[in-house]
């Protein structure tokens, strides 16, 4: 298989995860959009932090007026599991150029880890396997950032649609089977979203 074929196979294998990620990106975008963050801060969090469960928790911490130290320490604890992912995939990055390691590390989420680790278990390490990894990781990243952006823009452009209500409702209902990374933080909807609930 060529680079392109590996890359496309990665894109293809990421599709099932998109079904689970997009709804949570939309929920994040609307919750962050109606809170104290500007549009670009909300989307910037998805672009630069790129860690669903930490983002959800931090949004509710910010709305509760938590201090910077609490927010950064929480991020540290919630994301500590990534060290294990990093260690598990470390044998596969041997001999990889620095820029590849930086990029793939930045994109190392629960979902990327689950798909890529399975690929290495089933197929072993092949010379072009990092193109598969790149396909998976870029697709999931694009999905998370774009769903956050679209939802954030919509909730700001059309506040009367009460998308925020719908989202916080979904947030309360959200299922463990849909997005394991967010399940841990599911029970703390931000204060402003609760206040907007009709019931």
């Amino acid at each position: 298989m060529s680079r392109n074929q590996f890359f496309v196979r990665g894109l293809r294998d990421s599709v099932p995860m998109l079904v689970g990620i997009a709804p949570f990106g939309i929920i994040f975008g609307t919750l962050a959009g109606v809170g104290g963050l500007t549009l670009w801060q909300a989307v910037g969090m998805s672009m630069f932090v790129y860690a669903g469960s930490a983002q959800f928790i931090v949004i509710s911490l910010m709305s509760a007026g938590a201090g910077a130290l609490v927010i950064l320490l929480t991020t540290f604890i919630v994301n500590l599991r990534h060290v294990l992912y990093s260690a598990t995939l470390q044998p596969q990055v041997q001999g990889m150029p620095q820029r590849w390691r930086l990029l793939l590390a930045f994109w190392l989420t629960d979902e990327t880890f689950a798909i890529v680790q399975r690929h290495y278990l089933v197929h072993g390490r092949t010379p072009l396997a990092h193109w598969y990894w790149l396909g998976v990781a870029s697709s999931l990243y694009a999905c998370w950032v774009s769903s956050s952006l679209v939802a954030c823009c919509l909730v700001r452009r059309f506040p009367t649609w009460r998308v925020g209500d719908l989202s916080s409702r979904c947030w309360q209902l959200s299922s463990v089977s849909s997005c394991p990374c967010c399940a841990t933080s599911r029970r703390s909807p931000p204060r402003w979203s609760r206040a907007r609930l009709p019931c």
Binding site: T38, A54, A68, I71, H82, V83, R101, L104, A105
Partner: peptide, 27 residues
């Protein structure tokens, strides 16, 4: 908020990169 976001990004990235920083390390 921007400083917080950058701080969160740095913490998260450093944990993800932690063991990729030593690609020749063998466990």
């Amino acid at each position: 908020y921007w400083w917080l976001i950058l701080g969160m990004a740095a913490i998260t990235f450093l944990m993800r990169y932690s063991l990729f920083a030593w690609p020749n390390l063998r466990f």
